[in-house]
Design a protein around this nucleic acid. Sequence first.
DNA 1: CCTACCGATCGGTAGG
DNA 2: CCTACCGATCGGTAGG
Lengths: 213, 213
Amino acid sequence: MSIPEYWPAPASSGAARAQRPSRRSGQRRAEILRAATAVFGERGYANGSLNEIAERVGMTHAGVLHHFGSKEQLLIAVLEYRDDADVAELEGHHAPRGAALLDHLVETAQNNAERRGIVQGYTALLGESVTEEHPARQFFTDRYTGLRDMVTSAIADATGRSADDPLVSSAASVVIATMDGLQTQWLLDPSSVDMREAVRLTVEALVARLRQA
Amino acid sequence: MSIPEYWPAPASSGAARAQRPSRRSGQRRAEILRAATAVFGERGYANGSLNEIAERVGMTHAGVLHHFGSKEQLLIAVLEYRDDADVAELEGHHAPRGAALLDHLVETAQNNAERRGIVQGYTALLGESVTEEHPARQFFTDRYTGLRDMVTSAIADATGRSADDPLVSSAASVVIATMDGLQTQWLLDPSSVDMREAVRLTVEALVARLRQA
DNA sequence: CCTACCGATCGGTAGG
DNA sequence: CCTACCGATCGGTAGG
């Protein structure tokens, strides 16, 4: 499973340069991950090739495979890389856990309208992931389980209902579904939809509905 | 653009058998369309091969290409075929145009829970369609424009608001987005979501919200 | 990291 | 509709 490292050490690897191969290798991996994120986002996973990824970082596809072992492992790394970035951003600004999470989601919808590449990558891979034996399937399944839990407790918090209330978990699924579905519509036709307003309306309507009765 | 027909006429093509080649060809095309729908649904378009489609109807991939010209044209035919089926079903049961459409969508969500293959095919192709230069892109763009119009007028009807009200068109986008997004969550984990209840809640909450103020 | 290669598979065409 | 073929491309491996 591990990736052997048998290429020659850099000629200038004495004490003069503090950069060990592992440091450079880490940078190179990050470059590949960025390129792979872009290519899978533009073309999808099935249609994105290692060759195109490799060209964008100035190496051959064999070089990419050296770093990541297989196309599938590269995809997994891309997904985790994206996840890390999301988490970092969440924690950087604030890590809202209660009702404030709902406002944060409205903000996210707005911000996403200026990150087309990222939205497209997410939507394309998510869509592909429901196909048979797709390597991203487990990743997204787990991710949505976690997302639903977070949003469920946020809605419980905002409405004073129990997180076990079926209406609450339904509402959580709906909020997430709305964000995903709006992204698809927006990607197909950006002028057709105001993602921020639509998410805001959804959250408002659901919370109001769950507050009564 | 047209597909030439130069294969030999059936040996038994006299007056005894009323089946002209065009009739048989039409049946064969329908078989291919069904197989292609299944394969693209299971594997996606990029990952689904003409060879697998051909095998399922007992011919070679060249035979499939004879009938449809190219893989891309086959995809377009599949999408139109699916669309025709949807329309036929809509008109068969009832063609609800006003507020009744909203109830019909709740029913559709319920019915979809027993048509996993169809839902998966739709979700996978829709997700792929947002990638660069994807052949299904125009199809889905047009489809969503039409869907939004229908649902917008249904919501206007149900709430007494104008179809030009931005809240109404936002709500329409949300209803459609919800259905799509829920399907994805359900495909990833069928036990995680009650599609019917979630759509019902969404419609109810949005209509209630738009009825006030 | 590259070169050089592999087998497999792809969509499409020619030609009947 | 098939056989037979094409060039292109794919992911992956060997070996340094």
